[in-house]
Design a protein around this nucleic acid. Sequence first.
DNA 1: CTCCATTGCGCAATTG
DNA 2: ACAATTGCGCAATGGA
Lengths: 196, 196
Amino acid sequence: MMSDTRVSSVIQEWANSYPGQAHPHTLNPNTPTNQLAQMDMAYSQSQGLVRGGSDDRMSEQMMGLSYMPYMSSCLSNTLSTGNTNHHQSNANTQQDFSSFLLPTLRAPVNKRSISKDSAEYRLRRERNNVAVRKSRDKARRRILLTQQRAMQLQEENQKLQMRIGQLTQELDTLKHIMSQRHLQGAPDGAAGESSI
Amino acid sequence: MMSDTRVSSVIQEWANSYPGQAHPHTLNPNTPTNQLAQMDMAYSQSQGLVRGGSDDRMSEQMMGLSYMPYMSSCLSNTLSTGNTNHHQSNANTQQDFSSFLLPTLRAPVNKRSISKDSAEYRLRRERNNVAVRKSRDKARRRILLTQQRAMQLQEENQKLQMRIGQLTQELDTLKHIMSQRHLQGAPDGAAGESSI
DNA sequence: CTCCATTGCGCAATTG
DNA sequence: ACAATTGCGCAATGGA
């Protein structure tokens, strides 16, 4: 039939995706690998509070060169990046007084004047963009792995259930034969008789 | 111990997440729900290219939960929206010649001057934003469900394997007993003798 | 063509 | 300071 070897390999990969914990060891449906625990609420209010006040969207980037597919911006990413980032909309609005708002815990010193133009800003942005792509790719891979794992587990499950049916039937037959010979008097002490 | 009833419910939910296929019915490991088939090289350079391959079917069925959290943002936001979107960066710059660049496939005709300001533009954007939130929320839920499903399948798997071990041992014991009674000569035709 | 759904991407805030 | 995550909006595209 299907190669069962493939299963274990994917399972292995999957396990690697969750360094935190995810071993069959102490598997507990109540601890959904954490990492996802907060997924539910994460949404309900982050929106209105976090960014709502600053309102910085708008005039994101390019619109101009947007028509051509991403070839340019993506292939030559990381640095060369003929990417289309031209957007110098209003932006630096709150980091000025952010130092005031913060609870005086070692004020961020001088973080001002990183406004968009500075090469440092672009550098940071570009780095973050790379990190973001990397992270998302990782997430995608993890999701894929989880899906494959689920499918394979299901497949394996069916096989196991068939096997159980097989064994059960065989056992019944054997027991029946033994009872036919009125020798049933000796219940096997070893295996017990767990119900079906 | 753990309620097994809950398992089936989650599985059920999960199944609903994949209307395309995902029923134990004709499950085929060779069709990994596609939708994620080409994921490996995604990072190196696919970014700009991949787009074309994806093909997934899936209708929409609300998945039960709606977007209570969004309701406020969606309903009220759509128009009232205290958002300060005023920016009139030049926008319509190249769609003029874009019609040239494109392979003559029904040129975008006149999509001109929908630039940012138009109420229609904002309306469309806002609608899309809503759709995006909805879609992502759905995706998150689906991922979570898949994970839970995988965990529960694994748990169930372990139980099944234990059961198999149990049955096998019981069967061995029985066979041993029968052979001890030198009655092995009677082949049970019904169950066959599948090796361990 | 319109409309919604999906998806890749960049930005900014947070986290570790 | 730095990479990794995460929510979000934008634009392109796919599919009714």
